[in-house]
Design a protein around this nucleic acid. Structure first.
Lengths: 193, 193
DNA sequence: ATGCCGACTGTACACCTGTCAAGTGGAGCT
DNA sequence: AGCTCCACTTGACAGGTGTACAGTCGGCAT
């Protein structure tokens, strides 16, 4: 067989099964389900295999996060490439499962410092991309005096979507409709049509 | 001694000590520190006393939350009673420790359903109060056509403050300055001066 | 003096957590 | 045939989790 030049154990569909299982559990039952035994059971594998493929739970959670992040990156990129990139970004942030997962990562970040660092890095790069996107829209539409700074709009889109997710989590919905209306009205200033 | 007509065990400075300890731990070390033994240790009390005063951890967490909520209510009320209530509300949401604690409650809410319900109830009533406050400001200043619905402004203030807290948690700060500038500019439309 | 009652202690349960060290079994190469 | 390598299993560790229940002790009212 051809050698696999990976510095870490390559091969192994099992490794993938573990990552899949962890992701699924995070979606379904949230951060409390992120435990060695539950993940292994979900992957139909002995618990010890988790530590065979990952040094620690911290390494696993970072790996899972990176994959979430990469998958979000694709959707993100796609959204920003279309016509009306800002509207697409808003839709994406409101609806995607990745958004709901983020809350769980925030919780797990309290426990695993490496995850916090990964989140910081990915969060900052996403924001940078979004700021550029806003600037491109402004330039393209000849908006010389936008209602707010590009960074503020990027942060606003994330923040409003994230907050609605959090509130939905505790079954709070007061004002959500008005928030959506406001954000969409604001975006229309950037992207009429 | 006079009888205490409480339906639940009254008296007991110990009970208070436990609630204080739990609050402090939540502030300092977050939701992972919310455990019987750590709380008891912080209160300098035997662990068993936690279950002497509270049926379960769920009852304790709800009690602690109610107290947070009540203390926030006072600050909230005070802020909304001053001149420039909206500016005061924004400052309050950005700076108070109650805001940081909320994140921990969100995490604990995944574990304790009763906490979720308490959060929903208190969240909705705070929002209702804020909506009224916005409407009062609009009426007082003769703002007949505000930039957004009152509910949207209330939600926006909460959401932006909360999101900045979350991002600070992972040491993300890109765009925060611009967000502050935007929110303050918006509030100035409601409350010039 | 006796008995009650409320605050608190001692002891224990069953279960779950992450992590590790040593062994097994088979495929592949020399 | 022997050796090595790798995916995986066996078995176990020390420590943590929430919760229960029977006992003790001291002040109070009768």
């Amino acid at each position: 067989m051809v050698a696999n030049r990976g510095y870490l154990s390559t091969s192994a569909a099992t490794r993938l099964r573990l990552i899949d299982a962890a992701s699924a559990l995070l979606d379904e039952d949230g951060y409390p389900a992120f435990t060695v035994r539950r993940i292994a059971a979900r992957a139909e594998v002995k618990p010890q295999l988790v530590h065979y493929y990952f040094r620690s739970m911290e390494e696993l959670v970072v790996t899972v996060f990176q994959r979430s992040s990469a998958s979000y990156f694709r959707l993100h990129d796609e959204a920003l490439s279309g016509p009306r990139p800002l509207h697409a970004l808003w839709e994406l942030n409101c609806n995607m499962p990745e958004g709901r997962r983020m809350l769980e990562y925030v919780a797990l970040g309290k426990i695993y410092p490496a995850l916090r660092e990964a989140m910081r890095a990915s969060g900052e790069s996403f924001r940078a991309i979004q700021i550029e996107a806003v600037e491109r829209v402004c330039a393209a539409r000849g908006l010389t005096d936008p209602p707010m700074a590009p960074a503020a709009l990027a942060a606003l889109i994330s923040a409003m979507a994230r907050s609605m997710i959090i509130e939905n989590n505790v079954a709070m919905t007061v004002g959500h409709e008005q928030v959506r209306a406001f954000v969409e009205a604001t975006l229309k200033l950037y992207e009429p049509d």
